Simulated assay, not measured.
Amino acid sequence: MKSDSSASAAPLRGLVGPLRSSEPVRVTPTPSAAVVLLEEASDLLIVHLDFPGALQTCERAWQSLDKDGQAEEPAGTSLEVKCSLCVVGIQALAEMDRWQEVLPWVLRYYQIPEKLPPKVLELCILLYSKMQEPGAILDAARAWFRDPASQGLPEYRALVELHLHRVLLPLGCLSEAEELVVSSAILSEEQRLDALQAISTAKQQQNQQLSHSEEAQKQNQAQKRNQEDSFSHKFLSLLVLLRRLWDSAVSHFFSLPFRKSLLAALILCLLVVRFDPASPSSLPFLYKLAQLFRRIREAMFSPFYRLPTHD
């Protein structure tokens, strides 16, 4: 019996070390499929720089966790694996310049922002603030900070400062920033005073920018009014000039002899109407015009208008 027990324990000495008589035999647990895929995704990201392959491997690991990973591993280990998979996936998306997909990709697995791990939220804030798009993470971060479960985490204090300086202050959400600092009981007095001082400085800068923008707007409006007044003055001057030219033309026209005036009127009519005198359609008009001239001549040179002659 002694030889049998020593023979059965021989293969385990190299793995678990020397065994005591009172110590149970412990075997190293086999890593789950999600852990193996996580290591593979890390190698693809860091060693091989295969970013699409790393992202696909992370998605395969997530599917493995959804199927049977939770049954094989403790809850804490599963949460750590999920967080690590998100970190690798975020880095892969950022390297492929697909940073806009980071938050939707993460929320596809965590469903709601309140469930995001602190490390994942920190990476999202840093990424979107670096790309100068902090507004994309504002709603998700706001929901995470308002969740009571998040306020008890040890990373809450550091994330409040990060969210304050990277998201709220650049976006000008000063009231929300002040409310977050005042309501965060986990912050120390020094941190609270520093945060309130930063918010006060941002308010002063915002007021200065508003005053400068108002002054610039007033100057633009005054310049626009001056341009409109100048245009109206020029337009009135042009109208006065046209009226003077019209009055001069009319006075010159009526100063001409009667026959020259009729001839000028006829030429003006021909120029304005632009009809062809040789066209058959213009013959009735010319005939009526000739009759009008004949009647005017007969009226002017009729016996009633002749001057008396002296013998």
Score class of each variant (00 low, 15 high):
182 V>L: 11
163 H>D: 01
170 P>Q: 10
199 I>K: 02
141 A>W: 02
180 L>A: 10
132 Q>S: 12
206 Q>V: 09
203 K>S: 10
186 I>A: 13
166 R>L: 07
128 Y>N: 06
160 V>E: 09
152 G>T: 12
182 V>Q: 14
203 K>G: 08
194 D>V: 15
199 I>L: 05
174 L>M: 07
173 C>F: 08
169 L>W: 01
131 M>S: 11
163 H>R: 06
178 E>N: 09
142 R>T: 15
157 R>H: 09
209 Q>P: 01
162 L>Q: 09
154 P>C: 08
148 P>F: 11
213 S>N: 13
160 V>Y: 15
147 D>S: 15
167 V>K: 00
139 D>V: 10
199 I>Q: 03
209 Q>L: 14
176 E>H: 07
182 V>P: 03
208 Q>D: 11
152 G>P: 08
124 C>H: 03
188 S>C: 02
154 P>E: 11
162 L>V: 05
159 L>I: 06
155 E>G: 04
179 E>D: 13
183 S>A: 14
204 Q>M: 13
172 G>F: 02
164 L>G: 04
162 L>D: 03
194 D>T: 15
138 L>Q: 14
132 Q>D: 14
195 A>F: 12
153 L>I: 01
171 L>D: 01
121 L>I: 01
161 E>F: 13
203 K>W: 07
159 L>E: 06
189 E>D: 11
122 E>D: 10
137 I>H: 02
127 L>R: 01
136 A>G: 05
181 V>F: 07
144 W>G: 05
161 E>A: 11
172 G>T: 00
146 R>F: 05
198 A>D: 08
176 E>K: 01
179 E>T: 13
150 S>E: 04
170 P>C: 08
125 I>R: 04
156 Y>L: 04
161 E>G: 05
145 F>K: 03
207 N>F: 12
134 P>E: 09
131 M>P: 04
201 T>E: 12
208 Q>Y: 06
168 L>G: 05
172 G>H: 01
164 L>Y: 11
205 Q>Y: 01
183 S>F: 09
208 Q>F: 11
156 Y>R: 00
165 H>Q: 14
208 Q>V: 10
171 L>Q: 11
154 P>H: 10
197 Q>K: 09
212 H>I: 12
143 A>K: 14
182 V>A: 13
146 R>Y: 02
212 H>K: 15
193 L>K: 07
126 L>K: 12
198 A>W: 04
138 L>I: 05
192 R>G: 02
165 H>P: 00
166 R>C: 09
178 E>R: 12
192 R>A: 07
150 S>A: 14
170 P>M: 06
146 R>E: 12
179 E>P: 02
177 A>R: 02
167 V>T: 07
140 A>E: 11
187 L>F: 13
137 I>E: 00
195 A>R: 00
207 N>P: 00
160 V>Q: 04
146 R>M: 12
124 C>N: 05
138 L>F: 08
188 S>I: 02
211 S>D: 12
173 C>Q: 14
211 S>T: 15
126 L>I: 04
137 I>Q: 04
158 A>W: 13
173 C>S: 12
149 A>G: 06
143 A>Y: 08
177 A>I: 04
